[in-house]
């Protein structure tokens, strides 16, 4: 199973991920119609942070959706059955990352569906701040970096 992960320290805050997400799902030039949003927080702290669905193993949004509109698919993705959804906003409350998005042009939430296995945001992120990797290798780069600092000889 593959999962999305974020290296916020690499992110430059360009918002390409937002825009390509909106094109991919709605064919609209509207970064507010994306399942990802980038917070450029300055000056304190100085950081660019993309907020995106983690496709949690035990998803709170699924658990708390009163209509049973959200479910965790076999491949690990959190998916929405649009016709069950009433737009009650419970999922946004439930999500520990607030990574569920709404827009006034639609009733149902905009939730990351991993673009059927080839996420556009990952593909076009110019800094590799977003990754789509097998769970067994998730955050391997950070792990390796930390491991290097723990090395014995140098």
């Amino acid at each position: 199973m593959k999962a999305l992960s974020v290296y916020a320290e690499k992110c430059c805050g360009c918002r390409i991920c937002e825009l390509v997400c909106a094109y991919q799902h709605f064919q609209r030039n509207n970064p507010k119609k994306a399942a990802i949003r980038v917070f450029a927080l300055f000056p304190n702290p100085a950081s660019n942070v993309p907020v995106v669905c983690h496709h949690c193993g035990v998803p709170k949004c699924v658990e708390l959706c009163p209509e049973g509109a959200l479910y965790k698919a076999e491949d690990g993705r959190i998916l929405l059955t649009a016709k069950k959804c009433t737009g009650c906003l419970e999922c946004i409350e439930a999500c520990p990352f607030t990574a569920v998005y709404f827009h006034s042009d639609m009733i149902t939430p905009i939730i990351c569906d991993l673009c059927d296995g080839d996420p556009a945001c990952v593909k076009w992120c110019p800094t590799k701040a977003l990754r789509f990797t097998p769970l067994s290798a998730i955050k391997q780069e950070r792990r390796a970096r930390l491991a290097a600092t723990m090395g014995g000889t140098s």
Partner: peptide, 19 residues
């Protein structure tokens, strides 16, 4: 330098945030 800064949809990110 502590972070990159970029304009909208720019992969170059020439901006430097410095402390």
């Amino acid at each position: 330098k502590v972070a990159d800064r970029s304009c909208f949809a720019c992969p170059i990110a020439c901006g430097n945030f410095c402390i």
